[in-house]
Amino acid sequence: MIAPAIPDRVGRRWVALAMAVLMLATSPSVAVEPSEMLKDPALEARARAIGQALRCVVCQNQSIDDSAAEVARDMRRAVRERLAAGDSNNQVFDYMVARYGDYVLLKPPFKAGTLLLWLGAPLVLLVASAAILVAVRQRRVAAPPPPLSERERERLRSLLGG
C-alpha cells in the first residue's frame, strides 16, 4: 500500500483500455449496480460471494465484484444468469475457468501446480515444530540440570531460612 500510480510499463497491453480501467478502478460507482442484482436475495447473496472469489481479468488484483471494468460487469451478469438457471456455485466457477483459466479464481485450485502454495506453510510449521521438539529434548537429555539462578538461590535461601 504505497503510493498508487499508473504504471508506465506498457509492453503490448492496451494503453487506452488500461488507462480507462485504472481511471475507473478507484471509482466505486460502477461495481455491482442495482440494475444487475437478482430479485431473490438468497441467490443474489450467492452471486456476491462468487463475485468476490472471481478475479477481474483486466484489473489489478480486484474481484469482479469490486471492479468497474466492462468485462467484470459481463462476468457478474453471467454469474447471475448461471445461478438463475440453477447452476451450483462450483458449476459457475467451472464455467468461468473454462473461459479464463485458473487465473480467474482468487483462491487457486488445489492441484499439482499449486501443491507448494497450499502445503508450503504447513510444511514449514511441521518441520520447524519437529526440529524444535527434537532440539529441546536432546539438550535436556545431554545437559545437566541448569544451575539455579541468582533469584532462585535467593528464594531458596529465604524459604530455607523461613
Partner: peptide, 15 residues
C-alpha cells in the same frame, strides 16, 4: 452488443 459472445471466447477487452 452485450458481450456474451466475448465472454464465451474468454475475451478480456478489445482488441
Amino acid at each position: 452488443f452485450d458481450g456474451k459472445t466475448g465472454l464465451d471466447w474468454g475475451l478480456s477487452g478489445v482488441p
